[in-house]
């Protein structure tokens, strides 16, 4: 198990390295006249040249890449071209905000999808049809449309929640809960749709296994068989989908944060992109990549816990 973990970790680090290298080269090759963009059309050619020299963007890309890599390894991702704030600071002050929403959405969608999926698989008939319809709609309708819809109905018309803004969890838990409810709901629906299909499918598959009949023949109750045995066996494939959905949720957070004016990673991703703030975009790519690697590793570990065969190999 330890070797398995180490191997996954190493491959994650390699993946991260390749992603950041490719991103760095592409971003810097296409950066254009950075000084002009920062200083605006009114600046003189001399100040622009000076700015470019300050930022080091006139030097060859390869040299700058190794420079960046060396600093990045020590945790120094440079400073934003536009705000002069350090990249680490800009990102980490917002990371918790985004994580609280994304993790919240992961948990919510995992739980709801499991409940719905098991229900559909056991009841079949109309319950199954209903869940299928929900899944198709939730899959097809883009998350930001759902978000816009939720804002209009629950914030602007019913006034149950504030339409925008974010309350720190440390400041007020209920305030936080109320500020993230709509964003999490908007994010979760798509993920639920994808996961519920998998849960339903693998529960139905697991129920048809021979050992389910044998467990029944031993006098175990249907609930015990489904919730203890079938669900544990169906958990693997469902978790794999959850891992994929997590990546999707991070992406979805970018748009949802914009709609609900939540000061998270999504918001600076959009502004950094629009401005072409290369150091900040690089930092974001690395952090999001690392997040994905960590979550995949966690999911693999849980898989190992659920499935003894994975543990051995």
């Amino acid at each position: 198990m330890l070797r398995f973990t180490v191997r996954r970790l190493v491959s994650g680090v390699i993946l991260l390295f390749v992603i950041s290298s490719v991103a760095f080269l592409l971003l810097n090759l296409g950066a254009g006249d950075v000084g002009r963009r920062i200083l605006g059309p009114a600046a003189t050619a001399d100040t622009v040249a000076l700015k470019n020299e300050q930022l080091g963007v006139s030097e060859p890309v390869i040299g700058r890449y190794f420079d960046w890599l060396g600093h990045a390894l020590t945790g120094d991702f440079g400073t934003s071209w536009f705000t002069s704030q350090s990249v680490e600071q800009a990102i980490f002050s917002r990371l918790a905000v985004t994580l609280s929403i994304v993790i919240g959405a992961t948990v919510v969608s995992g739980v709801i999808a499991t409940v719905l999926g098991v229900w559909a698989a056991r009841r079949r008939g109309w319950a199954d049809k209903l869940v299928q319809v929900i899944a198709v709609l939730g899959f097809a309708i883009p998350g930001f449309l759902i978000a816009i819809f939720l804002v209009n109905v629950f914030a602007l018309n019913l006034h149950w929640f504030k339409p925008t803004g974010y309350v720190q969890m440390s400041a007020s838990f209920t305030g936080w809960l109320s500020s993230v409810t709509l964003p999490i709901a908007a994010l979760s629906i798509g993920a639920i749709a994808a996961i519920v299909q998998q849960v339903r499918g693998s529960v139905i598959d697991a129920q048809r296994q021979d050992w389910v009949r044998t467990l029944r023949s031993r006098g175990l109750s249907e609930n015990r068989i489904v919730y203890k045995h079938v669900l544990r066996n169906a958990g693997g494939p469902a978790l794999a989908v959850l891992a994929v959905q997590f990546i999707g949720l991070v992406g979805g957070a970018v748009i949802v944060e914009q709609i609900f004016a939540i000061p998270g990673l999504g918001q600076i991703s959009v502004s950094a992109t629009a401005q072409g703030d290369v150091p900040l975009v690089m930092g974001l790519v690395v952090v999001v990549g690392a997040l994905v690697v960590i979550v995949n590793l966690l999911i693999d570990l849980i898989q190992g816990f659920l499935n003894p065969k994975v543990r051995v190999s």
Partner: peptide, 9 residues
Amino acid sequence: LIMALPGIV
């Protein structure tokens, strides 16, 4: 590699 990052990013 492609699938490791959120598409929107």
